[in-house]
Amino acid sequence: MNCIIIDDEKMARVILKTLCNEIDSLNLLEEFSNAIDAIKYLNENKVDLIFLDIHMPNFSGLDFIRSLKNPPKIILTTSDPKFAIEAFEYDFIVDYLLKPLALPRFKKAIDKAEAKELKAASSTINNNFSKNEVDNDFYVNIDRRLIKIDLPSIYLIEAKGDYIKIKTDHKDYTVHSTLKKIEGKLPGSLFLKIHRSYIINIKKIIDIEDNSVLIMKDVIPVSRSKRPELMKRLDLL
């Protein structure tokens, strides 16, 4: 899970960073000393989980929560549990942690966040494959032509500088875009970013060996931080 930290106290940020480093499935993207900078960042970047201090001067954690349009999962951090009560009205609040934070309780909160993520992914599968066929494709702009691409036929998307290469069962397409942009259009149930340069269709994996996957004829590296998430998504016997 890609996460960020918002806390006005440097000590709290360093402690959270230390704890995040203990969990393989967490990828800490950024840390912020105020909520306003975090809002700007969230407008441009996809984040799965936020560690949010409630008690901050000027613009509090609660002000921040109320300002979010599409909130990711949030774990509250606070020295005072009564500040967390109001926030629990929101279903995207996964848990709250009392300061000073300790690893065993931190791990439990991450487990809760991961369980919530898996539940959301399985509900996306149901929605995508039963409800609406239109959700199963999208259009890309190549040389001023809009070309329809069937989502399940995509097996690999590769970053190539300012371009991405979309590989499907039938054909490859080179599109002027970024992995970050296309990631938002793909169903999380089917696709997973396993490396900063690669998104794969997990249903097309042939085999996995150490830190790489074989998908069609391509051998793709898997980042160490992404491997636990990949393993969770596979139907292991």
């Binding site: 006005d8 106290e9 000590m11 709290a12 402690i15 001067p57 020295s79 005072d80 300061k99 000073p100």
Partner: peptide
């Protein structure tokens, strides 16, 4: 109050 709140964290650490 805000400053005491911040210092409180150091006290617990």
């Amino acid at each position: 109050e805000e400053n005491v709140h911040k210092l409180k964290h150091k006290i617990s650490i």
